[in-house]
Design a protein around this nucleic acid. Structure first.
Lengths: 103, 103
DNA sequence: ATCGTTCATCGTCAATCTACGATAAAGATG
DNA sequence: CATCTTTATCGTAGATTGACGATGAACGAT
């Protein structure tokens, strides 16, 4: 047995992993569009976003989950709705990581 | 008939598409690592990159192609080798697009 | 001309992603 | 309580991605 740890291991650095994860969350135009809506209009209820997107509700919800898992977006349950807003710190983090890549 | 053009069409803006494409190219730690190597060490022959990565030559070559297609990297054939270097303008473009998202 | 080196591409398999309809869960409302 | 609205999740089908070995193409050296 050459591997005793249970954690997933990769031979890449943390910064590489972190940047890749953030980039992956932005790697679909729908998610970029959602994020743009949220930074422009501040808070949005899920249904408002769905109305702006050429996608089914289930698909938008799935993209929102990806953005939330990446920390780019925060969701707060508000009665029967869910209110989403952008999390600027994550975007700034992404910008910083890209900047570090440039040198 | 509601669609006469032959080009692929998306309902997203160009900026959304462009950012998504650049992000997608960075959406794998191996590609981030390759890009970091290239910005740190300037030019690199493909084999040097392969030696630094825990991946087969074919896989690294495939990742290099993704980076090249996204414009993040340039490759120049030099005899039997191929010399790669980062294309900083593309990274700056990415940074700018992310910045525009923040507002 | 025949090697040996270097790299890109092909073929392929497993895994992940994207999209959607259907359904479940949670609150509001009558 | 029954119902409507809103959103998340399930299940699934098709497409794309990531990994590799094998092979091919291009060049330098013997």
């Amino acid at each position: 047995m050459t591997q005793t740890r249970t954690e997933a291991r990769t031979p890449f650095t943390r910064a590489d992993e972190e940047l890749a994860l953030l980039a992956k969350a932005l790697a679909h135009p729908a998610r970029v569009a959602i994020l743009r809506v949220l930074t422009r209009r501040g808070e949005c209820v899920c249904g408002q976003i769905v109305d702006l997107m050429p996608l089914a509700q289930a698909t938008v919800s799935q993209h929102l989950k990806v953005l939330k898992d990446a920390g780019l977006v925060q969701g707060e349950i508000d009665g029967p709705r869910t209110c989403y807003c952008a999390h600027p710190a994550a975007l700034e983090r992404l910008q910083k990581l890209v900047g570090a890549l440039i040198d």
